Computed example of a mutant assay.
Amino acid sequence: MSKGKVLVVGSNATRIEIQGGGTGPTGQYLNETVVPAMALVDAGYEVVLATPDGSKPHIDPVSDVAQHFDGDEAALQRGRAFFKENPGMKNARTLRSVIEEGLDGYAAVFVPGGQAPAVDLMQDADLGEILRHFHVRGKPTAFLCHGPIASLAALPQAREYRAALISGDEKKASQLGKDWQYAGYKMTVFSASEEKPIEDNILHGKLYFNMPDALHTAGGNVSTGAIDFAPNVVVDRELITGQNPRSDHPLGAKLVEALNRANVSA
Rank of each mutant, 00 (worst) to 15 (best):
155 L>P: 15
118 A>E: 14
252 G>K: 08
101 E>H: 02
74 A>W: 11
257 E>I: 02
155 L>Q: 10
27 G>E: 13
118 A>L: 11
176 L>E: 13
189 V>E: 01
104 D>N: 09
32 E>M: 05
196 K>C: 02
81 A>T: 13
224 T>C: 04
198 I>V: 12
262 A>T: 08
78 R>N: 14
112 P>Q: 07
197 P>Q: 11
258 A>R: 13
171 K>F: 01
105 G>E: 07
81 A>G: 01
245 P>G: 00
180 W>R: 00
203 L>F: 12
248 D>M: 09
152 L>T: 14
101 E>T: 01
266 A>C: 02
136 V>S: 09
121 L>D: 14
187 M>P: 03
79 G>D: 10
162 R>W: 00
103 L>A: 01
184 G>L: 04
117 P>S: 10
43 A>Y: 07
62 V>M: 04
244 N>H: 03
218 A>N: 13
101 E>M: 00
246 R>H: 12
174 S>G: 15
34 V>N: 01
164 A>D: 12
23 T>L: 00
11 S>E: 14
205 G>D: 04
66 A>W: 15
219 G>W: 01
107 A>T: 04
63 S>K: 05
24 G>L: 02
227 I>E: 09
52 P>W: 03
150 A>V: 08
94 T>H: 08
215 L>A: 02
158 A>S: 15
125 A>G: 03
20 G>S: 08
226 A>L: 08
219 G>V: 05
212 P>G: 04
134 F>N: 00
137 R>E: 07
138 G>Q: 12
141 T>Y: 05
27 G>C: 04
106 Y>I: 05
234 V>D: 04
2 S>V: 08
253 A>W: 00
152 L>H: 08
